[in-house]
């Protein structure tokens, strides 16, 4: 019997095989879909919020004095990097919960992995959209400036984290090594955020998450940014719910293959 079977936090049923069972009686049940009524509600809310973001970002919010229409990129660029930060913090918290709780539930490991996957996608969007914004405002797509460099390093680090998760071994080996990496990698976030203060940078300093408390942003622009944060937060939640369940099913499929092989072997031994 595979020792990696786990009580699942997602509500999936995971039934392990009894040693006496044969290949024909392996009993594993799993949901046929990652969707639930909760994912449907969050999904619809995310679509509505995205429509709201399009309306405010492209329609109601004004152009900027200096950047003109290019400022509208802000409503995707900033929410995606904030959500990426959140995703990686969730990865770190879930990693800590896996490592430092007595139960060591693989559900925490899957939450960490799913969140990191979504975070990597969001950082990629931030970098691509930021390069386009840079071309329109700075005049260059890329500059080896502190903020851009540290953000690129953050992206590369978490791509590495995802690769480490797929190196093989048992679920628990995967969970242990990726949890350690997840706790180390999150330390890059303060470096990315404070890079514009630590080094002289082409990238502007923070407008909203600034320590002086002043938000130098037009009211409607700020509201549009808020809508963007809500929309991408809902998208993150929707993706998380689906991905965690999908990862549970992937683990289940792997376990079923191993259980089937062991059951077949026992059948051979008994024959």
């Amino acid at each position: 019997m595979n020792g990696d079977h786990d009580d699942d936090d997602t509500g999936n049923t995971m039934t392990t095989t009894d040693p006496a069972q044969t290949a024909d009686t392996v009993s594993i049940t799993a949901p046929r879909s990652t969707g639930t009524s909760a994912t449907r509600v969050v999904g619809v809310a995310a679509i509505v919020a995205m429509a709201w973001l399009v309306a405010f970002g492209l329609g109601f919010s004004p152009a900027d004095r200096d950047q003109e229409e290019a400022v509208r990129i802000l409503y995707v660029h900033v929410p995606t990097i904030w959500l990426a930060y959140l995703a990686f913090v969730v990865t770190a918290i879930a990693s800590a919960l896996y490592l430092f709780t007595s139960k060591q539930s693989l559900g925490w490991d899957r939450a960490a992995g799913a969140s990191a996957e979504i975070g990597v996608v969001f950082v990629a969007v931030t970098l691509v959209v930021g390069a386009l914004w840079g071309r329109l405002t700075w005049g260059v797509f890329w500059q080896w400036d502190a903020r851009l460099t540290t953000t690129a390093l953050l992206f590369v680090t978490y791509v590495g984290y995802l690769a480490v998760r797929r190196l093989g071994g048992s679920h628990r080996q995967r969970a242990r090594r990726s949890a350690v990496l997840g706790l180390i990698a999150v330390l890059e976030i303060p470096l990315v955020h404070w890079s514009v203060r630590l080094w002289r940078s082409l990238h502007q300093e923070a407008t909203v998450l600034d320590t002086d408390g002043d938000i130098d942003m037009d009211g409607l622009m700020l509201f549009s940014l808020f809508v963007g944060v809500i929309a991408f937060t809902l998208l993150y939640a929707w993706l998380m719910m689906h991905r965690v369940r999908a990862m549970a099913m992937e683990d289940l499929v792997e376990d079923r293959g191993l259980d089937a092989a062991l059951a077949a072997r026992r059948a051979e031994g008994g024959a």
């Binding site: 004004p62 152009a63 900027d64 004095r65 200096d66 950047q67 003109e68 400022v71 802000l74 405002t137 700075w138 005049g139 260059v140 500059q143 082409l202 502007q204 300093e205 923070a206 407008t207 600034d210 130098d216 942003m217 037009d218 409607l220 622009m221």
Partner: peptide
């Protein structure tokens, strides 16, 4: 390279 500030002002 043009550096824009952290201020966002409507036209």
């Amino acid at each position: 390279e043009v550096k824009h500030s952290d201020e966002y002002v409507a036209v």
